[in-house]
Amino acid sequence: MSISVKEASGITTYRSTPDYLDQLEAEAIYIMREVAGQFERPALLFSGGKDSITLVRLAQKAFAPGKIPFPLVHVDTGHNFIEAIEYRDELAEKIGAKLVVRYVEDTIKAKGLKEQTGKNASRNWLQTFTLLDTIEEFEFDACIGGARRDEEKARAKERIFSFRDEFGQWDPKRQRPELWNLFNGRIQKGENVRVFPISNWTELDVWAYLKREGITLPSIYFSHERELILRDGKLLNNTPVIETDPEDQIVTRQVRFRTVGDMTCTAAVESSAATLDEVIAEITISRISERGETRIDDQQTEAAMEDRKKGGYF
């Protein structure tokens, strides 16, 4: 909240300018409430990562003292970090939210899908099928996600209310104009809207907010010793779901995860940052972007994210 003081004259004057975190928070809460006000069956896409943890806190504040009026939905690739999954379950229970989990594994079996094989195999792309099935199953008309525009160049062009057709597709050239804070969530049955309340936040803003709010995070975000696969300069979790070959080295390092996604495409960073303050200090001086450092999936082509989104990705 901005600080304002009453002076003797009775005129309100501002002692200080509003803080950017308050401004971003107020905007995100406004967006959350627009979703609840405009849609019949919204959902919050929750992964146990820091961005969706931020969303949950914002949703709590938006609807307090009531509960969050929509379920948390997680698309589980089966290759997620156990720490994130445990955190997800504990949080949902603690705040009394409804949690819906759907498994990529089940989609693969039901649809007879072919999984990628080999050392860089990932279920990242397959998540889209499970997500679209889940949207259909529950008839979700709006899905709130934790994507930020500073993450990636295709995301920098996406609307806060991002319209998807009945096939879940994003068409960057036919986006609805988004004016002022007048979000247009009118859709036909079968279509849906992806909503990104923290579009205007940066990675550092998220960390600063988590610190200010005193939120605990899954332990993998902080420095710990871990056995890893060293491949092409990137450190991947040493787990049976990642196939190794003789060129890979198994190493033990002091690391933390800067983003928490599917294990097959999320790399660790060497770090001694064990607290929120140390993490914030580390990111502040870091000269490499979040996804550039940790995401293998974005680096396959110059337009990797753009192409995935057109296909219905988060």
Binding site: Y20, R149, D150, K153, A154, A156, K157, N200, A303, E306
Partner: peptide
């Protein structure tokens, strides 16, 4: 940002960039 923009060398949609100085944050 987008593929068609890089190919044509023009900006086709509204794009957002985030940066800061010691005095202010900018969108």
């Amino acid at each position: 940002g987008l593929r068609s923009e890089r190919e044509q060398g023009i900006t086709i949609d509204v794009a957002y960039k985030y940066f800061q100085t010691p005095n202010r944050k900018f969108i």
